[in-house]
């Protein structure tokens, strides 16, 4: 799992995740995701490069969403593959964090 963070200066940040978001991958992103959720109002999470999502990855996304929601913020997911989307839907988290097709849609939603 690798990640790239951009737009760090604004109220909304973007984090691009690439690779497997499994038990090992979740360890890699945990601190960055929690830090962004704590310091930003909006978070765009680009999942298009994520090839595998396990429940531990979903947990980290839910925790970040909880942190953002508490201060009126939002987390939006961009471009998951069908396999990753199925895990999100089965986990029942798509009503907590919207899924959109493009980064532009995500920024529009966060406002």
């Amino acid at each position: 799992m690798q990640f790239i963070i951009s737009d760090e200066a604004g109220a909304t940040a973007k984090i691009v995740l690439v690779g497997k978001l499994d038990i090992a991958g979740a360890d890699v992103i945990a601190l960055a995701l929690a830090t962004l959720a704590g310091s930003k109002k909006g978070l765009v999470v680009d999942l298009s490069g994520v090839t595998f999502l396990a429940s531990i990855g979903v947990r980290h996304l839910v925790m970040a969403t909880k942190t953002l929601t508490r201060k009126g913020g939002k987390l939006v997911l961009v471009g998951p593959t069908d396999a990753v989307k199925e895990v999100l839907v089965t986990s029942g988290v798509t009503d907590l964090m919207p899924i959109v097709a493009t980064e532009r849609d995500a920024y529009a939603l966060i406002g």
Binding site: A54, S55, I56, V58, R59, V62, M63, T65, K66, T69, R70, V87, T90, S91, G92, V93, D95, L96
Partner: peptide, 20 residues
């Protein structure tokens, strides 16, 4: 998995996926 975000538990999802 229908609870609002404030009440959403973060445990138990793995076995929920396994059962599903």
């Amino acid at each position: 998995i229908d609870a609002p975000i404030d009440e959403r538990q973060i445990g138990g999802l793995g076995l929920h996926l396994v059962k599903h």
